[in-house]
Protein backbone atom coordinates (compact mmCIF):
# COMPACT_ATOMS: atom_id res chain seq x y z
CA UNK A 1 0.00 0.00 0.00
CA UNK A 2 1.33 3.40 -0.92
CA UNK A 3 0.07 6.67 0.42
CA UNK A 4 0.23 10.24 -0.66
CA UNK A 5 -0.94 12.75 1.91
CA UNK A 6 -1.47 16.42 1.30
CA UNK A 7 -2.85 19.40 3.17
CA UNK A 8 -4.58 22.12 1.21
CA UNK A 9 -5.46 25.52 2.57
CA UNK A 10 -9.06 26.76 2.31
CA UNK A 11 -7.99 28.55 -0.82
CA UNK A 12 -6.53 25.39 -2.35
CA UNK A 13 -2.90 26.24 -1.77
CA UNK A 14 -0.87 23.12 -1.04
CA UNK A 15 0.62 23.48 2.43
CA UNK A 16 2.19 20.13 2.94
CA UNK A 17 2.63 16.83 1.18
CA UNK A 18 4.32 13.59 1.88
CA UNK A 19 4.46 10.18 0.27
CA UNK A 20 4.96 7.06 2.28
CA UNK A 21 4.22 3.38 2.19
CA UNK A 22 2.65 1.09 4.72
CA UNK A 23 4.65 -0.25 7.61
CA UNK A 24 2.09 -2.88 8.45
CA UNK A 25 2.47 -6.51 7.54
CA UNK A 26 6.14 -6.28 6.88
CA UNK A 27 5.94 -3.14 4.74
CA UNK A 28 9.09 -1.04 4.73
CA UNK A 29 7.37 2.34 4.81
CA UNK A 30 8.50 3.30 1.33
CA UNK A 31 5.96 4.42 -1.21
CA UNK A 32 5.79 2.38 -4.42
CA UNK A 33 3.24 3.95 -6.67
CA UNK A 34 2.19 2.43 -9.90
CA UNK A 35 3.41 5.36 -11.87
CA UNK A 36 6.91 5.53 -13.14
CA UNK A 37 9.11 7.85 -11.11
CA UNK A 38 8.77 10.40 -13.85
CA UNK A 39 5.01 10.57 -13.36
CA UNK A 40 4.74 11.30 -9.64
CA UNK A 41 2.71 14.37 -10.51
CA UNK A 42 -0.11 11.91 -11.11
CA UNK A 43 -0.61 11.77 -7.35
CA UNK A 44 -1.14 15.47 -7.18
CA UNK A 45 -3.30 15.39 -10.25
CA UNK A 46 -5.56 12.69 -8.83
CA UNK A 47 -5.76 14.13 -5.38
CA UNK A 48 -6.59 17.61 -6.56
CA UNK A 49 -9.19 16.33 -8.93
CA UNK A 50 -11.10 15.03 -5.94
CA UNK A 51 -11.56 18.52 -4.56
CA UNK A 52 -14.90 18.89 -6.28
CA UNK A 53 -16.14 15.85 -4.45
CA UNK A 54 -14.82 17.19 -1.18
CA UNK A 55 -16.57 20.46 -1.63
CA UNK A 56 -19.77 18.70 -2.47
CA UNK A 57 -19.50 16.38 0.49
CA UNK A 58 -18.38 18.88 3.07
CA UNK A 59 -21.80 20.47 3.46
CA UNK A 60 -23.72 17.23 3.55
CA UNK A 61 -23.10 16.57 7.22
CA UNK A 62 -21.22 18.05 10.13
CA UNK A 63 -18.44 15.51 10.21
CA UNK A 64 -14.84 16.48 9.93
CA UNK A 65 -13.89 13.10 8.58
CA UNK A 66 -15.53 12.57 5.20
CA UNK A 67 -14.23 9.02 4.76
CA UNK A 68 -13.53 7.67 1.34
CA UNK A 69 -14.88 10.18 -1.11
CA UNK A 70 -13.36 9.51 -4.48
CA UNK A 71 -11.80 6.75 -6.52
CA UNK A 72 -9.69 6.99 -9.60
CA UNK A 73 -10.01 3.51 -11.09
CA UNK A 74 -7.30 3.76 -13.78
CA UNK A 75 -4.70 4.03 -11.07
CA UNK A 76 -6.69 2.22 -8.44
CA UNK A 77 -6.31 5.27 -6.26
CA UNK A 78 -8.65 5.95 -3.37
CA UNK A 79 -9.02 9.34 -1.76
CA UNK A 80 -10.08 9.96 1.82
CA UNK A 81 -10.69 13.43 3.13
CA UNK A 82 -10.72 15.23 6.45
CA UNK A 83 -11.75 18.83 7.03
CA UNK A 84 -10.55 21.11 9.75
CA UNK A 85 -13.03 23.63 11.11
CA UNK A 86 -11.00 26.40 9.54
CA UNK A 87 -11.48 24.86 6.12
CA UNK A 88 -8.10 23.25 5.55
CA UNK A 89 -8.37 19.95 3.70
CA UNK A 90 -6.42 16.84 4.58
CA UNK A 91 -6.44 14.49 1.63
CA UNK A 92 -5.02 11.01 1.65
CA UNK A 93 -4.53 9.05 -1.51
CA UNK A 94 -4.07 5.38 -0.96
CA UNK A 95 -3.16 2.92 -3.59
CA UNK A 96 -3.14 -0.80 -2.93
CA UNK A 97 -0.06 -2.64 -4.04
CA UNK A 98 0.08 -4.31 -7.38
CA UNK A 99 -2.48 -7.00 -6.80
CA UNK A 100 -1.51 -10.43 -7.90
CA UNK A 101 -4.51 -10.98 -10.04
CA UNK A 102 -7.35 -12.89 -8.43
CA UNK A 103 -5.40 -13.28 -5.21
CA UNK A 104 -6.70 -9.93 -4.15
CA UNK A 105 -10.22 -11.13 -4.55
CA UNK A 106 -9.43 -14.25 -2.67
CA UNK A 107 -8.44 -12.19 0.34
CA UNK A 108 -12.06 -12.44 1.27
CA UNK A 109 -11.89 -10.27 4.34
CA UNK A 110 -13.49 -7.37 2.53
CA UNK A 111 -17.22 -7.37 1.93
CA UNK A 112 -18.91 -6.85 -1.37
CA UNK A 113 -17.17 -3.50 -1.72
CA UNK A 114 -13.85 -5.16 -1.26
CA UNK A 115 -14.64 -7.60 -3.98
CA UNK A 116 -15.49 -4.85 -6.36
CA UNK A 117 -12.26 -3.10 -5.63
CA UNK A 118 -10.39 -6.27 -6.08
CA UNK A 119 -11.88 -6.52 -9.51
CA UNK A 120 -10.57 -3.10 -10.29
CA UNK A 121 -7.15 -4.13 -9.14
CA UNK A 122 -7.12 -7.20 -11.24
CA UNK A 123 -7.84 -5.17 -14.34
CA UNK A 124 -4.79 -3.14 -13.59
CA UNK A 125 -2.94 -6.20 -12.61
CA UNK A 126 -2.91 -7.19 -16.22
CA UNK A 127 -1.16 -4.07 -17.31
CA UNK A 128 1.41 -4.03 -14.53
CA UNK A 129 3.93 -6.45 -13.24
CA UNK A 130 2.81 -9.25 -11.02
CA UNK A 131 2.52 -8.63 -7.29
CA UNK A 132 5.53 -8.95 -5.05
CA UNK A 133 5.72 -10.94 -1.87
CA UNK A 134 5.08 -7.81 0.11
CA UNK A 135 1.83 -7.38 -1.72
CA UNK A 136 0.73 -10.84 -0.83
CA UNK A 137 1.69 -10.34 2.77
CA UNK A 138 -0.58 -7.35 3.01
CA UNK A 139 -3.48 -8.91 1.17
CA UNK A 140 -5.40 -9.50 4.36
CA UNK A 141 -4.57 -6.13 5.90
CA UNK A 142 -6.30 -2.82 5.42
CA UNK A 143 -4.22 -2.32 2.32
CA UNK A 144 -6.16 -4.75 0.25
CA UNK A 145 -9.54 -3.30 1.12
CA UNK A 146 -9.38 0.45 0.72
CA UNK A 147 -13.05 0.95 1.48
CA UNK A 148 -13.54 -1.55 4.26
CA UNK A 149 -14.66 -0.30 7.70
CA UNK A 150 -11.26 -1.23 9.08
CA UNK A 151 -9.56 0.98 6.56
CA UNK A 152 -11.95 3.84 7.19
CA UNK A 153 -11.24 3.56 10.88
CA UNK A 154 -7.48 3.41 10.40
CA UNK A 155 -7.57 6.48 8.18
CA UNK A 156 -9.75 8.25 10.70
CA UNK A 157 -7.23 7.57 13.45
CA UNK A 158 -4.45 8.75 11.19
CA UNK A 159 -6.30 11.93 10.29
CA UNK A 160 -7.12 12.66 13.92
CA UNK A 161 -3.51 12.32 14.93
CA UNK A 162 -2.30 14.47 12.08
CA UNK A 163 -4.94 17.03 12.95
CA UNK A 164 -3.72 17.19 16.53
CA UNK A 165 -0.19 17.85 15.33
CA UNK A 166 -1.39 20.26 12.70
CA UNK A 167 -3.04 22.36 15.39
CA UNK A 168 0.19 22.45 17.37
CA UNK A 169 2.11 23.42 14.29
CA UNK A 170 -0.12 26.31 13.34
CA UNK A 171 0.08 27.47 16.95
CA UNK A 172 3.76 28.07 16.40
CA UNK A 173 4.08 31.85 16.54
CA UNK A 174 6.48 31.86 13.65
CA UNK A 175 4.01 30.11 11.38
CA UNK A 176 1.86 32.45 9.31
CA UNK A 177 -1.55 31.29 8.18
CA UNK A 178 -1.49 30.05 4.62
CA UNK A 179 2.24 29.47 4.64
CA UNK A 180 3.75 26.19 3.56
CA UNK A 181 4.37 23.91 6.54
CA UNK A 182 8.08 23.28 6.55
CA UNK A 183 8.40 22.03 10.09
CA UNK A 184 10.57 18.94 10.25
CA UNK A 185 8.90 18.04 13.51
CA UNK A 186 5.51 18.00 11.89
CA UNK A 187 6.78 15.90 9.00
CA UNK A 188 8.26 13.35 11.33
CA UNK A 189 5.05 13.21 13.32
CA UNK A 190 2.98 12.61 10.21
CA UNK A 191 5.38 9.85 9.27
CA UNK A 192 4.99 8.40 12.74
CA UNK A 193 1.21 8.57 12.52
CA UNK A 194 1.37 6.82 9.17
CA UNK A 195 3.54 4.11 10.59
CA UNK A 196 1.21 3.70 13.52
CA UNK A 197 -2.15 3.55 11.76
CA UNK A 198 -1.59 2.77 8.13
Amino acid sequence: MSYYFTILSPTDVPLFNIAFGTSKSGGDGIARFRFPDTAQYMNQFIIHSSLDMVEEAQWMNGNMYLKHIDTYPPASAYISAFLTPSGARFLLLHQPPHAAGPNANAGGSGGGGGGGIGGGSSILGGSFAAGSSAARASASSIAANPTSPQTEEAVRQFMAEVYENYVKTVMNPFYRQGMEIRSAVFRSRVTAAGRKWL
Binding site: T169, M171, N172, P173, F174, S183
Partner: peptide, 8 residues
Protein backbone atom coordinates in the same frame (compact mmCIF):
# COMPACT_ATOMS: atom_id res chain seq x y z
CA UNK B 1 7.69 28.07 24.40
CA UNK B 2 4.98 25.46 23.86
CA UNK B 3 4.33 24.84 20.16
CA UNK B 4 7.29 27.00 19.22
CA UNK B 5 9.69 26.08 16.47
CA UNK B 6 12.23 28.72 15.67
CA UNK B 7 12.27 30.15 12.14
CA UNK B 8 14.37 28.00 9.83
Amino acid sequence: ADFVELPD
